[in-house]
Computed example of a mutant assay.
Amino acid sequence: MSSCFNVEKPEKPKNLITEDNMVNILVDMAIMSSAKGVNKSKIEKNGIVPDQYIYDKNNTDSLTFAESNAYYAYDIKKYDIIYNRVKDSLTAIREGYKEILEKEKAEKKIKDSIKNAKAKIEKGKNLNNKQLKSLNATKLIPKKITD
């Protein structure tokens, strides 16, 4: 039973990936994993090999990552700190995208209201005077069009 607890600490790899770079790689892996779940066929169609793409992007390779990951994983507290940074980074990215989405929705709402106003104006040009006065009374058509 005591042999189960006799895990030796891995040697520090010669090319140990820094904690900051480990966070970046793990964030990229989480994002890629989500992307594969949503658009796997699109990723494959574009010839992207997810893991290789991440290693290339972060100037590393699978062996260096595996050795560094094993080294950091041995120290649970350090690994927990790394994963909390990953979680914080993913949360920040998600919040950034939420802000972008909200801005896009607001812009679309403005564009749609402009489009609707133009359509009402165009509609107003094709109405007779009685219809125009009725729309003008409801403030849908600017007064200068009815003059």
Score class of each variant (00 low, 15 high):
residue 87 K to D: 05
residue 69 N to L: 06
residue 115 K to L: 09
residue 49 V to R: 07
residue 112 D to G: 12
residue 145 I to E: 14
residue 42 K to C: 07
residue 134 S to M: 13
residue 81 I to N: 11
residue 102 E to R: 15
residue 8 E to Q: 11
residue 146 T to P: 05
residue 86 V to G: 00
residue 22 M to P: 12
residue 102 E to K: 13
residue 139 K to T: 05
residue 83 Y to C: 03
residue 58 N to V: 00
residue 109 K to R: 14
residue 32 M to T: 08
residue 119 A to Q: 10
residue 2 S to H: 13
residue 118 K to T: 03
residue 146 T to Y: 07
residue 19 E to K: 15
residue 112 D to R: 09
residue 108 K to Q: 15
residue 59 N to P: 04
residue 28 D to K: 00
residue 127 L to T: 00
residue 119 A to R: 11
residue 30 A to P: 04
residue 40 K to F: 09
residue 30 A to K: 12
residue 12 K to G: 02
residue 85 R to F: 00
residue 84 N to S: 07
residue 55 Y to K: 01
residue 105 K to G: 11
residue 37 G to N: 12
residue 103 K to R: 14
residue 3 S to C: 02
residue 116 N to C: 09
residue 109 K to Q: 14
residue 117 A to C: 06
residue 20 D to K: 11
residue 89 S to Q: 07
residue 65 F to Y: 15
residue 6 N to C: 01
residue 7 V to G: 03
residue 10 P to M: 00
residue 18 T to F: 01
residue 130 K to I: 03
residue 145 I to Q: 14
residue 123 K to T: 09
residue 105 K to S: 07
residue 90 L to Q: 02
residue 71 Y to W: 10
residue 55 Y to M: 11
residue 143 K to L: 02
residue 21 N to Y: 05
residue 99 E to L: 10
residue 57 K to G: 05
residue 99 E to V: 06
residue 72 Y to R: 15
residue 126 N to E: 03
residue 136 N to D: 12
residue 17 I to W: 01
residue 65 F to T: 04
residue 84 N to C: 01
residue 123 K to E: 12
residue 10 P to E: 01
residue 56 D to G: 09
residue 13 P to T: 03
residue 124 G to M: 00
residue 68 S to R: 02
residue 27 V to T: 06
residue 105 K to F: 11
residue 92 A to Y: 06
residue 36 K to T: 08
residue 71 Y to I: 02
residue 18 T to I: 02
residue 103 K to F: 06
residue 31 I to S: 03
residue 126 N to W: 01
residue 71 Y to G: 02
residue 51 D to S: 12
residue 51 D to P: 05
residue 144 K to Y: 13
residue 97 Y to L: 12
residue 110 I to W: 06
residue 43 I to N: 10
residue 1 M to E: 10
residue 85 R to M: 02
residue 50 P to H: 03
residue 124 G to Y: 01
residue 24 N to W: 03
residue 9 K to L: 00
residue 99 E to G: 07
residue 43 I to R: 14
residue 138 T to Y: 15
residue 133 K to S: 05
residue 3 S to R: 13
residue 145 I to F: 10
residue 97 Y to M: 05
residue 41 S to P: 05
residue 15 N to W: 03
residue 49 V to L: 05
residue 6 N to P: 03
residue 38 V to Q: 07
residue 32 M to I: 03
residue 112 D to T: 09
residue 131 Q to Y: 01
residue 101 L to I: 11
residue 31 I to L: 13
residue 123 K to F: 11
residue 122 E to N: 14
residue 84 N to H: 11
residue 8 E to C: 03
residue 73 A to L: 10
residue 122 E to S: 10
residue 39 N to I: 13
residue 54 I to L: 11
residue 132 L to V: 02
residue 39 N to Y: 13
residue 106 A to P: 12
residue 143 K to Q: 08
residue 104 E to W: 06
residue 29 M to S: 12
residue 146 T to H: 07
residue 130 K to D: 15
residue 127 L to V: 01
residue 38 V to I: 12
residue 46 N to Q: 14
residue 123 K to P: 05
residue 117 A to L: 12
residue 66 A to R: 09
residue 101 L to H: 07
residue 55 Y to H: 03
